[in-house]
Design a protein around this nucleic acid. Sequence first.
DNA 1: AAATATAGGTTCCTTTTTAGAACTTGTCAA
DNA 2: TTGACAAGTTCTAAAAAGGAACCTATATTT
Lengths: 162, 162
Amino acid sequence: MRWEDLDQQPCSLARTLAVVGDRWTLLILRDCFLGVRRFDAFEQRLGVTRHVLTDRLKKLVSYGVLYKSPYQERPLREEYRLSEKGLELHPVILGLVGWGDKHMSDERGAPIIHIHKSCGQEMHATTHCSVCGKAITAKDIKVEVATSWQGHLDEFLPSKSR
Amino acid sequence: MRWEDLDQQPCSLARTLAVVGDRWTLLILRDCFLGVRRFDAFEQRLGVTRHVLTDRLKKLVSYGVLYKSPYQERPLREEYRLSEKGLELHPVILGLVGWGDKHMSDERGAPIIHIHKSCGQEMHATTHCSVCGKAITAKDIKVEVATSWQGHLDEFLPSKSR
DNA sequence: AAATATAGGTTCCTTTTTAGAACTTGTCAA
DNA sequence: TTGACAAGTTCTAAAAAGGAACCTATATTT
């Protein structure tokens, strides 16, 4: 498999990485969730080269994660904003942040905290079953080929998980 | 910022990406969660070059996400297994898969389904507040600098989110 | 009027990563 | 004795990223 063919793989993880799996892309999205919208603001905050930044923003717009919105005319200036599709990446960001808070923090602990507006408390994200609502861990889940894909994915699942 | 300095940033997202943010790393971890453990199995399934695979596995072991476990002696052969720390990346995988299922699927739908062993149902992951247990979206969360970092992160949060 | 600033890029050249193939090492089986 | 196997390492070529300078349209300052 070549990296550029990722979005045609029969795997939702691979297809998502086709959108957000390049270097810097998830850091750009982190800044979007913090309210950053303009090219030069991303550039200064990330220290990424303009060439890479142009490429990543273009890709995110082409996949519909961000959209360009004019904030002045003459000369036309546009900023980058999260679409509904982009906002739905928030659980991914929270997952990565949560793991880093727990496993990569130094003695000062997590730099940023998340307040749940509705309960007012400092929280972190937990992952739950959409059906029964219970919290889950990796060992609570079994994986299967969807019926619509049976016969087309024979070699994808290694025998251990079948 | 240089990509190699990611693990020293005052940001848990950046620090997590120092571990899992390189090309192919999250696909390697996907396979680990499917039960793949051996060098040649990763190589065949991913089509990644041996050079890159060696580098990524070494990095994951050095960060304690995977550990090497001998499965035969003479000649010594070792396989790569998820540590407890690695298993805790499952919410990140589920988040990426869930987004791909929703936004990147073709007409056949999601290739892989997840069964919650305890309730027996086909589920997807939802994200909740660890304090009150309610399901959350991006707009339910407010971000603040942790007290232990105040004064050291003045420029990190753009004014919009403060 | 001329020079400078600004936002959002593009161009050019160098360095780092990745791709692709061949080679290595220790052991076992034919 | 030859070949296979697992898990790499080494080599060269191609692609991506880093770094600096340049471009464009407009607005402001000198």
